[in-house]
Computed example of a mutant assay.
Amino acid sequence: MTDDSNIEKAPGETPAPATLIDIVFPGDTNHHGTLFGRAGLALMDRTAFIVATRHGRVPFVTASCDRVDFRGPAHIGHIVSCSGRPIRVGRRSMVVEVDMIAEDLTAGTRDLCARGQFTMVAMPEGKGAGWSLPSLDTDAIGAPKDDAVRMVDIVYPDQANSFGAMFGGDALAQMTKAAFGAATRASRKTTVLASCQRIDFKHRITVGSIIELVARIVRTGRSSTTVDVELWSEDLTGAKQTLTAHGAFIMVAVDGDNRPVPAFAA
């Protein structure tokens, strides 16, 4: 493994559109086994906050949820992906449109569950009366350069230790989720974590930081897939991203009885 303890992304490098990915667990569902609307709204609102913060680089609050159309359910075990993009920017407020997609990883189907628009208001403390948000530049929106699984989220206080830094266990959970998504999407089989190879934690991640995980498949075997996962962090008000953790995860494809099966067709 190379020495990447000080790798940073240049401030001028535009991040890809923000996508927050989560798994639908039983505790997030109603008696029909589908995702609660409130849980979906919370994910969409978090996505809108990340999009707005990356655009303005100041704190934001949600002013209104202008409209949300629920078009289909997300079932237990599905992956939900919330992707946001700014569609209108004013002096101190902006509108972010968010799509929530439900994906059955083993079947390979993707269905639009909900689409909504969120008005976010900037709270630019210390910026002066003449401060305003940057104008919307659609040409500057980055696009993924490869087929890696990318997911963003925010670090909350319940994920931190007494020093205000993210727990290593929570960071590992996020990295494992990214590895699961990459391995299952590639094989279209249910995958489970077999082992974590060396995990290097390089920098602390403070509460309120945005984290971005990038998962790439680097090796495949008969039933196993090795996924390289990078965990990047960025301060809410700064564009610089820092590589904070890096590791390799071995995921194994299993059947309904949890026995290994071929991950890819011969």
Rank of each mutant, 00 (worst) to 15 (best):
residue 182 A to Q: 05
residue 172 L to W: 01
residue 110 R to Y: 04
residue 37 G to W: 01
residue 135 S to Y: 01
residue 185 R to N: 07
residue 204 R to Y: 12
residue 231 L to Q: 04
residue 65 C to M: 13
residue 40 G to Y: 02
residue 69 D to R: 10
residue 206 T to S: 15
residue 155 V to K: 02
residue 214 V to D: 03
residue 232 W to C: 10
residue 195 S to A: 15
residue 231 L to S: 07
residue 119 T to F: 05
residue 69 D to F: 09
residue 126 G to M: 08
residue 234 E to A: 13
residue 220 T to G: 03
residue 227 V to Y: 07
residue 33 G to S: 02
residue 47 T to L: 06
residue 105 L to R: 12
residue 91 R to T: 14
residue 210 I to P: 05
residue 25 F to H: 14
residue 54 R to Y: 05
residue 119 T to L: 13
residue 154 I to L: 14
residue 141 I to W: 00
residue 182 A to G: 01
residue 50 I to V: 14
residue 106 T to Y: 09
residue 12 G to K: 04
residue 157 P to Y: 06
residue 83 S to T: 15
residue 29 T to N: 06
residue 109 T to G: 03
residue 20 L to F: 12
residue 142 G to A: 12
residue 12 G to S: 10
residue 222 R to V: 06
residue 177 K to V: 02
residue 254 V to A: 12
residue 211 I to M: 06
residue 204 R to P: 13
residue 75 H to A: 09
residue 234 E to H: 02
residue 167 F to H: 12
residue 158 D to A: 09
residue 10 A to D: 15
residue 80 V to P: 04
residue 162 S to E: 10
residue 207 V to R: 00
residue 44 M to G: 04
residue 6 N to H: 15
residue 41 L to I: 14
residue 218 V to M: 14
residue 258 N to H: 14
residue 174 Q to M: 11
residue 138 T to F: 08
residue 222 R to A: 03
residue 75 H to L: 03
residue 161 N to M: 02
residue 168 G to E: 06
residue 20 L to V: 15
residue 179 A to D: 01
residue 203 H to M: 03
residue 161 N to R: 04
residue 148 A to D: 08
residue 65 C to S: 15
residue 31 H to Y: 09
residue 52 A to K: 10
residue 182 A to M: 12
residue 190 T to C: 03
residue 46 R to N: 03
residue 77 G to V: 05
residue 244 T to V: 14
residue 178 A to L: 13
residue 190 T to Y: 05
residue 91 R to C: 00
residue 226 T to L: 10
residue 5 S to Y: 01
residue 215 A to V: 12
residue 222 R to H: 12
residue 162 S to K: 08
residue 2 T to C: 02
residue 149 V to D: 01
residue 234 E to K: 06
residue 22 D to G: 02
residue 50 I to F: 11
residue 20 L to R: 11
residue 189 K to M: 09
residue 255 D to P: 06
residue 83 S to K: 12
residue 172 L to S: 11
residue 120 M to T: 04
residue 227 V to P: 01
residue 145 K to W: 09
residue 104 D to G: 06
residue 52 A to W: 00
residue 46 R to T: 08
residue 160 A to W: 04
residue 111 D to T: 14
residue 107 A to N: 06
residue 50 I to R: 07
residue 55 H to S: 14
residue 65 C to A: 13
residue 146 D to K: 09
residue 8 E to N: 05
residue 250 I to E: 12
residue 208 G to M: 03
residue 223 S to D: 05
residue 41 L to S: 07
residue 13 E to H: 11
residue 208 G to I: 10
residue 19 T to H: 03
residue 43 L to R: 10
residue 264 F to W: 10
residue 93 S to T: 15
residue 97 E to R: 15
residue 129 A to C: 06
residue 194 A to L: 14
residue 21 I to N: 01
residue 57 R to G: 01
residue 159 Q to L: 10
residue 218 V to W: 08
residue 246 H to Y: 07
residue 155 V to R: 07
residue 50 I to Y: 05
